[in-house]
Design a protein around this nucleic acid. Structure first.
Lengths: 336, 336
DNA sequence: AAATTAAACCAAAACGTTTTGGAAAAGGTG
DNA sequence: CACCTTTTCCAAAACGTTTTGGTTTAATTT
């Protein structure tokens, strides 16, 4: 059996209370005994039973990461890893552990959000990749569990969120195309089930408005954030509006889909059509032509989410944290 | 406060013992009271406190996933997500939760393996991405904690491993190149700190031997599994051995590096040089030319690892599980 | 009717901590 | 020296379960 606080107490000839208080840095134990206890604990290779501790403190020093759609067949979440890495880095400082929940809306097993968290007694949770229509959203709107969402604007007593400034980012991307001389600019947006889609549309509109380019409904179309989505949308859009010379996309995957579609249609990128994406996934720099896109600092988003969650757990007020983005100019968009 | 077993006992007018035994399906409680208790539990929205349970049963129904090098700057682990998805699927059946440890050899905080696991009281762990030189390896060799390794051959009372048949896979890939008529076949291998590197080298040699092609030391070179590694190795290899017409790689990233290098050197793939990779990452099908490569069933590897770990936890004997691979033929290798 | 067995239940201990509410010892003050 | 503080310690309770080792009641067998 593992060595417990009792063993130490016995060895040291003190009570378990004293051992506990010595090890946890309480002031009411003399330096002398504290040292003795610490030494014994060291020698016995003692490490506290976190379960027992959790039972009494009602804190586990564990946070959940709730992620949806990790495993959409054929399309692994393109930047989950970056976010995850950021989260881990953010948690490391305060020694929080991470327990990973992948919720699969398809599966029957739709454990309610609060139950999910309470069953494992996490101190808080980060939520990522949820659609607006997900039932969790409503639950989270009035949960008492410290929660930080990524890319979903919900704010209350215990929940905050972090995201890029999608309006501004889309504004910049579209403005860049305008600056290159494009007037007929399509927008292949993500589905309506994502908060970012609305924000990006707003940014797109804003950029057009500012340049006195009339907004046309038929120039914007919604679909999945996937490559196939981009592929199909592009064909349709170009077929119906051949005057379009540039297309802005709500994701790099979609942009890459468009790229393929353009190639298949015998169009050259960027000579015949300019393409701009969103995300700056790894792939964006590897394909030819390199994809001009909006870089999201996903690592930082994850990092901030973790730090903010910890602060909420510690009692601070939740807020909206915006993480900077930047336009990465490569070869897929060109002056006309 | 959350509702406990005591509340139910009070409502039902029975002891906590009976509630516990009723809920856990013990036979010594009448169907009548069992139903009553179940109903009350349902109504009160009771869900057992896993911490308290864990304290007495000494089981947490949680497994750890220990992964190294998740976050090598610039190179996110290319198929971690697939493995992770498989692991989650494998755990779901038995309702095990997953807690994620990313060990960062660079950081000072090298918590010993056993301490890592014991502190959080995981029932077992899956270990992935470790180098052979990692100190964890030695610890795991004689740990008592149920463990399943991915791609690292260690077998004992409590630890098993799962991997592809790397010898056979490399054999097939090399043989394919031989079949295409290549005689001067380079091999850009991974570093010596990975078990798979040795196995793949063996397969490569075997294929040459079988076809009576003499093995040449200068045709094989070791490096990281990264794109840069491939890029640099390829340049060097081709420069020193211009007679080479095909190169087999220990990873797709390296193969892609070679592809870039070849392009930069003005060589056409596959016309001037045939390239074969290993892994079949997503990118492999997206680039042009499509990369011929060995597909590793990473999802399945993860799945099997999880299932096997659970079986070890339940007391079964650890073993080596090999997960099938297959050669995926695309356009990057060609007959000469 | 007494003895045995089976079914249904329960009180208390246990798990390993932290926390509560003191108590004892030591030191200081008048 | 009597009183008050401060310092240092501790016994017991608490956290919410499961498990142990019963007891009680009813049914069955002799």
């Amino acid at each position: 059996m593992a060595v417990t606080i009792k063993d130490i107490a016995k060895y040291a000839g003190v009570s378990v209370t004293t051992v506990s208080r010595a090890l946890n840095g309480y002031p009411d134990v003399s330096e002398e005994t504290r040292e003795k206890i610490k030494k014994i604990a060291e020698e016995l290779n003692y490490s506290p039973n976190s379960i027992a501790r959790g039972l009494v403190t009602n804190k586990t020093h564990t946070v959940g990461l709730v992620v949806s759609e990790l495993i959409k067949p054929g399309a692994y979440h393109p930047f989950f890893l970056e976010i995850l890495a950021g989260i881990k880095a953010g948690l490391r400082k305060d020694k929080y552990d991470l327990i990973l929940y992948t919720v699969d809306p398809a599966s029957q097993d739709v454990t309610p959000y609060e139950k999910l968290c309470n069953d494992r007694k996490v101190d808080g949770a980060i939520v990522e990749g949820l659609k607006l229509s997900d039932p969790y959203i409503d639950e989270i709107k009035n949960t008492k569990i410290p929660t930080v969402l990524i890319d979903i604007p919900i704010l209350n007593d215990k929940v905050g969120y972090v995201s890029s400034d999608n309006v501004q980012a889309a504004f910049e991307a579209t403005s860049y195309l305008v600056k290159l001389g494009h007037k007929n600019i399509g927008f292949i947006n993500g589905h309506n089930d994502a908060a970012v889609s609305f924000e990006r549309l707003e940014g797109y509109k804003k950029a057009l408005y500012k340049s006195n380019i009339p907004y046309k409904d038929e120039y914007v179309v919604f679909d999945d954030f996937t490559q196939d989505g981009g592929y199909n949308c592009f064909r349709k859009m170009i077929f119906e509006n051949p005057e379009i010379t540039a297309v802005f996309h709500a994701s790099d995957l979609m942009a890459i889909g468009s790229l393929k579609a353009a190639q298949d249609l015998g169009m050259r990128v960027p000579e015949d059509i300019s393409i701009v994406g969103f995300d700056d996934i790894e792939l964006a720099s590897l394909i030819t032509p390199g994809l001009t896109t909006v870089r999201q600092e996903n690592y930082k988003i994850g990092y901030m989410a973790a730090r903010h969650l910890i602060s909420i757990i510690k009692g601070e007020k939740p807020k909206h944290i915006v993480v900077p983005h930047r336009l990465v100019i490569r070869q897929s968009a060109k002056k006309i």
